[in-house]
């Protein structure tokens, strides 16, 4: 039985203001419940832009020429506000330093919940639970700007967990992390996908995706050039795009 559709992109195209070339070009994709989709592509291929289209940041916050429709649980993202979108889809940006601004980890994680109008005590309790999930309970009252890069990224992921949204969008979530922290982050994401959440991550590390993702989407020049299972990572296309295919020695067995 086909799993429930959560996100649909219909012929989405986008070019940034002042630029002629399309960052996303006629992309149509459907994402379902429980999927762990990895979007890979060379630098500048349109991965991040595609991700921003998924939760309406493009074109609501990022100006440019946009065409097509994005539907979140059947609702057109262009017609609903961010408070409603954020209940369904959370985003983790590439650099956690650019998204952390509160004075304690607890307040940072509770921020999104407070925006929804949740009572402060309830929001803080949810934040504590999410922080425990990523293994940072002892850092709850610490200044997040003083944490290590891996810890900051876990805080950013905790923000997405606390929101309890059904879709989690991540833009190269482990790009500034060491191998161990990267594996920890991906283990958390895998767990979320097993719980029925939809995880969509842009990534350059094909190794991690080969171990955790259930679907691989290859982007080149703003277009989807391949969309399939993990076996896509072994195809010659990966090397042609300048990406490193996952090696058996360094990646180990798939979990």
């Amino acid at each position: 039985m086909a799993k429930k559709e959560v996100l649909r992109l219909e012929n989405v195209s986008f070019s940034y203001a002042g630029k002629k070339e399309k960052a996303v070009d006629g992309t149509s994709l459907v994402f379902r419940e429980g999927e762990f989709a990895g979007i890979i592509g060379a630098v500048g291929s349109g991965k991040s832009t595609l991700l921003y289209c998924c939760n309406g940041l493009v074109p609501k916050e990022i100006r440019g020429k946009f065409a097509g429709t994005v539907r979140l649980f059947g609702k057109d993202v262009a017609k609903i506000g961010f408070p409603e979108i954020s209940r369904e889809a959370s985003m983790v940006f590439q650099d956690p330093n650019d998204q952390i601004f509160n004075l304690t980890v607890e307040e940072e994680v509770a921020f999104g919940l407070l925006n929804r109008g949740m009572a402060r005590e309830e929001a803080l309790a949810a934040a504590r639970k999410a922080v425990a999930r990523v293994g940072l309970s002892e850092k709850l009252h610490d200044d997040p700007s003083e944490l290590s890069a891996g810890q900051k990224q876990k805080v950013a992921i905790a923000c997405a967990l606390a929101a309890d949204s059904k879709i989690i969008l991540l833009d190269e979530p482990v790009s500034s992390l060491d191998w161990r922290s990267s594996q920890e982050v991906y283990a958390i994401l895998s767990g979320l996908a097993h719980e029925g959440k939809t995880v969509i991550a842009t990534e350059q590390d094909t190794c991690l995706l080969s171990r955790h993702a259930t679907r691989i989407i290859v982007i080149d020049g703003g277009k989807v050039v391949k969309d399939g299972g993990v076996e896509v990572l072994s195809s010659s296309l990966i090397e042609k795009l300048g990406l490193r295919p996952p090696g058996p020695m360094s990646c180990g067995a798939r979990k």
């Binding site: 990022i62 961010f82 979108i85 985003m91 650019d98 998204q99 921020f111 929101a163």
Partner: peptide
């Protein structure tokens, strides 16, 4: 300016209005 931009995107994606 770059931080302000990404911060505003992050806040919008967390439902800040």
């Amino acid at each position: 300016f770059r931080r302000a931009r990404t911060l505003s995107l992050s806040m919008a994606s967390r439902g800040f209005d």
